[in-house]
Simulated assay, not measured.
Amino acid sequence: MQKTALVPYARLPRAHHDRHVLTSTVDVFGAAHWLLAEHAPQPGGDARPFDALVVSVHPGGNVELTELSAVRARWPQLDRLPDGGFVVAAARARRYEDANQVQVFDALGRETSSFSVGDAIENLLVDEAGHIWVGHFDENPAGIRRWSATGRLAWTSDGAGIPGLFDCYALNVSGTAAWACPYTDFPLVEIRPDRPVRVWANRVREGAKAVAVHGDRVVFYGGYGGERDGLAHGELTETSVEATDVGLLTLPDGLVPGRRRVGGRGGRIYVQAELFTAWGVFDLSS
């Protein structure tokens, strides 16, 4: 099986390695962000708000630090807004309608609003227009929804004709559009604000945790069992994704990632292996 190595993309500066990485992401403009705390959260431990640091590494290597005050999510999701602020969300709501589940911070790290998007967040990604896309896992039937940065529901997958949407395994947000590959049928889904949802039957890979799309080409990363580190290539026809090639995605040193974070943005798949201090990238467009 052909191996493809990730290309090193962004690294948390060593000066911050003494802090605990709560979560990390790569935003729609290509900047990598780490949300850091003094200590790792403990199950059943203190749930009081805490101060956190976001370390941002921009394309080109410039580093930016943002202190966030009174963060409430102990196991959070993170992304950056186009105005320089941040969204921090608790993946699990303490109650289904917890008004403090999502916190929005301005560029100075001050909370400006909070609201709920519902329990069981699998993916949270912000687009170029500042909309917050949320994909849920199977303990919340909400599927995929798009919110404004002030908590207004702007789009929902209810009635969108997406087959078998019980868990949003993979979500890719690029520009103002989203691509998804949801459980149980694993179709490839394109969602754009100005047109009906498009759905392609997926003949390539089930169980993928990330998807990237470039023109009429698509790649799925991950899968069940022995396909966990697999990279499955396909081409879009009118109604389906047809397989073209399969391979294995590795870290830059040729090893498989083990525990990892993954994310898709347009034609790119980003992978971050434990200890979660570095991102690698696979670029379908290159």
Rank of each mutant, 00 (worst) to 15 (best):
D245E: 12
V134Y: 11
A120I: 01
A149M: 08
A208I: 11
A180R: 01
F166E: 13
D185M: 07
G267T: 07
G247V: 14
L81R: 12
E64P: 00
S148F: 00
F220W: 06
I162F: 03
Y96T: 08
Q272K: 00
T156P: 01
Y183R: 05
N140R: 01
P41M: 14
G161F: 02
L248M: 14
L248D: 10
A142N: 01
N202Q: 13
V213I: 11
Y96R: 12
C181H: 15
D18G: 15
H17I: 11
S286Y: 04
F282Q: 01
G222M: 04
P13V: 03
L231M: 06
R192E: 08
P193Q: 15
L188N: 06
G159F: 06
W279N: 06
R92V: 05
F115T: 04
G85E: 10
R268C: 10
T66E: 09
A177C: 07
I191A: 03
R205L: 13
V189S: 03
D79P: 11
S240M: 08
R203E: 10
A177P: 01
A107P: 02
E274V: 05
G207V: 02
T237Q: 01
R259M: 13
R268T: 11
V102L: 04
W147C: 11
G222E: 00
L165S: 04
T112L: 03
N202I: 12
V213M: 04
Q42V: 15
W179I: 09
G266Q: 07
A208S: 14
R145L: 00
G84P: 09
A73F: 05
G230L: 12
F282H: 14
Y169C: 01
L153F: 03
D83S: 06
S69P: 05
G207C: 06
S114Y: 05
L53T: 11
I132G: 02
G215T: 07
L6I: 02
G159K: 01
P13L: 08
V211F: 10
D158S: 07
E227Y: 13
L248W: 12
G175L: 15
S240H: 14
W200G: 06
L12C: 03
E38L: 14
P8M: 01
S286F: 05
G60H: 07
D51Y: 12
L108I: 03
W75T: 10
E67K: 15
D229T: 08
S240Q: 15
L124I: 09
D167H: 13
P13W: 10
V7D: 00
R110E: 15
G223C: 09
T23K: 07
R145F: 02
P141T: 10
W147R: 08
H39N: 15
I269Y: 08
E227R: 12
F220H: 07
N140H: 09
E38S: 15
G222R: 10
R152P: 06
L22F: 14
G118V: 02
W34I: 00
P252G: 11
N140K: 01
T150M: 12
K209N: 11
V55H: 09
R80W: 02
G130A: 11
R260W: 00
G143T: 07
